[in-house]
Each structure stands twice: as C-alpha cells, then as structure tokens.
Write a protein that binds this DNA or RNA. Structure first.
Lengths: 225, 225
DNA sequence: GTATCCTAAATTGGCGCCAATTTTGGTAAC
DNA sequence: GTTACCAAAATTGGCGCCAATTTAGGATAC
C-alpha cells in the first residue's frame, strides 16, 4: 500500500458508521433513554437498515452491557447503575493515574501543543457544539493524553469502559459549573504536564474523573453555604 | 419467581455453553491455533450448530479481537502479538496491585481458607488435569482473590482482558518449572494475605503476572550460571 | 374502579436459500 | 521449474419467510 492508498483506506473506515455506532450514539446522547425498548423493527426504520444488521448491532451492544437482551422480549437500554459507575470510575482512576509518570516522561512540546488545542476545542464545543460534539471533544482530549502512556491497550480499554456507564454525556455534566470546571481542569492538566509535575497531574486526573470539587476552594465554600 | 424457579434458571444458565465459549476454549487450548481459518461451515459441523450461531460467535470473538474478520474471506485466529501481551500485562499489574490493600483489608478467615483450597486445586490440576482444567483452576484462584477488592467491574474486566493475549494456556506456561513456581506463588499470596502484608502481596502479584523469577534466589542464581 | 380472560396484532428468533466472492486445482505456455 | 489463465468447487454474506412468543387492547365480571 502506498501512502495514498493508506489515506483512502483510513478515510473509508473513518466515514463508515455502522448501526452499532448509530445506536450507541443515540443511547449516549439520551435520544434512546435508559429503559427504552429497542424494537428491532423500529430500529430497521430508524436507521434505514436490515434486520440482520440491527441484530448484530444489538448483540454487540449487549455484549458491552449497554443494552440488555431478554429472550423473546427483545432488547432494552440498561438503567443506570450507580454502583457500576462508581466501580468504573475507580478503575479509571487507578489506570489513568498509574500512567501519569509515563505521560510526563513522554510529553513533547508538540504533544503539549496538541493537547492545548484539544482543550480549547472542548471549550468551543461547550459554547457552540451539540451534545455529541461536546462529548467527542472530551474523548479526543483524554485519548490524546492517554496516548502519551505508550500503552495502546490501555488507551483502548479506557475508551471502552467509559462507554459503560454514567461517563456518557447525558449524565456526566449535570450543571454548567461542572462543565466549566472540566474545561479548566483540562488546561490545568496540560499545565502540570508541561511543568512535569507528576503529583499534580495525578491529583487533577483523579479529581476530574471523580468530578470532585476540591480544585477550587472558592467554589467549595459557596457549595457549603 | 420463587426460590425454586430461581434455582432452576441459574442452573440452566450455568450449564449452557454456547458456541462462543466452545470456540474460545479451542482457541485458548491450542486446538485452533493462531492463524487458523475458521470456516463457518466447518464450525457448524464441529460444534453441531447452525450458521447463524456460528456467525454470532465469530462476530463476538472478533469484537474481542481474538479472531480477525476479513470481508468475503472469513475469520481467522489472530497471531500472538508480543507488544499487546506486554501492554495487557502492564495493565493487569496496575489494576491488581492497586487493589491489594483492599484485598488485605477485606480478607476473612473464610475467604483465606477458600483461596487455600483453590490454590491446592490448582496444584492438583497441574498433576492430573487437562490443559483446560488447569487453566480454569488458575482463573478460579485469581478471580476469588480479585473478588476481595469489592469491585465487580474490575473483576470482570481483568477476566476479559486476560483472554486477549498470551495469558491463554497455550502460551502461558512454557516450562514445568514455571508452572510449579506459579503454584508456589499462589500459596505465597495467600500467606501474604493472611499476614496482612500489602507490600508482599503487591510484589507477588506483579512477579506472578510478569512471570519473573525473582521470588526464588536459589533459582535465580542457577539461571545466571 | 380493578382483575381476568381472550384474541388479534406485533415482535422475536431462526431457518433455508441463493447470489456474490474467493479458493482451489488443473492445464497451457514459457 | 514458474507464471498465467480458467472453470469448478467452496465459502461468505445477506435476504426473505414464517413459526413461536409476547404484547396490547377490548370485553366481561366483580
């Protein structure tokens, strides 16, 4: 394969969103809320596809435990499970803080600039983007950050498990303040990276994942009042 | 549902090994080696099932990246990838050592006794078991240990990712000595747990996952000679 | 109003079939 | 021996169909 061919192949793959992706998107954006009965014949119409395609998509999503399959009764979107969400957050904290030293060690001026750009892109999507664009801007930032770990399996794994629970856009950001804090935290992470401050990066990553408010004392005081 | 009905339903689910499990078992035990072309019509015969069942199994396994799907050419078992294996091991070390303190904290005499029993069961399977039984005895030990973390998502996740690479039985234990060391390490982990020695447990878990030999100085010296 | 029953409609599950594509093996040419 | 070609055989992919199961709505009884 020449570079041109690689480029074309990449574009083809990137442009092909199959039914699984489409259903997933609608679940994550709240169009298909928790509990929704995903009738196969409805999905055929909705996504203008065939029954086998619908079935494959649903089976895949059920394997990821985003939807539940009940024999002879079909599939429905799983209800949020607070315990699972907590456990997934815990896992993410473990994984993402564990590689903070690698990220700092491997950061280059180019990667830092790239992350700054992605953090700014998130800011912009906060203002003018759709729910999905906003969500994807967040994913893009975090993926780029995690790629600095050099562990591709870990990058993919985190990407996978984030989809399992309340990190999805419909539930992740409940307030405007929370969104804004997330945006600030992105920039602060890049600052920590640039300063090669591993401890600060770890602290920021954990706070970010847990969405705790201990990074802004003034806001913390306001909440207690 | 009454208790009787629940009991029956549980039994039914436990006894049902679908084609996905059967294919997976044959891949992990080396019956279907890396590179094997998994022809749908062959699998139908091999597992006495229908084409749609085969297809579902293959799609699931391809989603797990155990088999690769090439359009119009079918599915084949992935070749081992040393880099992926290393990355998965790194992830496992991160996760499993991170919860060592929780395991120690939550260990009860009953759970320790249970782990001892499972470690002994592994010993026995080393002597008299099939490759699969041996493999499953190992999984059972590690699952029980990880359950002490209290994080079910983590238990399931580790179980999942272990299937992705060379932790599978055909490649995990290359020598008799390695197997025996693994067996000893199981018991030593239980010892550390009982002694509530978090540092020791972490060290053992890491050595065990990486299959390094630094737990037995005499053997280490012999290898350097 | 609630509970029960029944039936038609809706939906799921899975099979058979066959067109499209690839592989295999034989033959011919060099 | 290698390469190219071709046809038959093998395999994949996906569609239509319909039996099995569930749901929804109406009627009846209390």
């Amino acid at each position: 394969m020449s570079m041109t061919e690689m480029h074309d192949a990449t574009e083809t793959a990137a442009n092909e969103r199959d039914v699984t992706d489409l259903v997933l998107e609608d679940i994550l954006t709240g169009v298909l809320p928790a509990g929704t009965w995903l009738k196969q014949i409805d999905l055929e119409k909705r996504y203008a596809c065939t029954r086998p395609e619908v079935r494959r998509a649903l089976d895949r999503l059920s394997q990821k435990r985003l939807v539940e399959h009940v024999p002879n009764r079909g599939y429905h979107v799983y209800q949020p499970d607070g315990r699972r969400a907590q456990e997934v957050s815990d896992i993410r904290v473990i994984l993402e803080t564990a590689v903070a030293d690698l990220m700092v060690e491997r950061a280059t001026p180019e990667s830092i600039a790239r992350l700054r750009e992605l953090a700014s892109h998130f800011d912009r999507m906060t203002m003018v983007g759709t729910v999905l664009e906003h969500y994807e801007a967040n994913l893009a930032f975090h993926r780029e950050l995690l790629l600095l770990s050099g562990n591709n399996e870990l990058v993919d794994l985190v990407s996978e498990i984030r989809q399992r629970t309340s990190s999805a856009p419909v539930s992740q950001w409940r307030t405007r303040a929370r969104v804004e804090r997330s945006a600030r935290e992105h920039h602060m992470m890049v600052d920590a990276l640039e300063a090669r401050d591993v401890a600060d990066l770890k602290r920021l990553i954990e706070a970010h994942i847990r969405q705790t408010g201990d990074t802004a004392p003034a806001e913390s005081a306001a909440r207690q009042a």
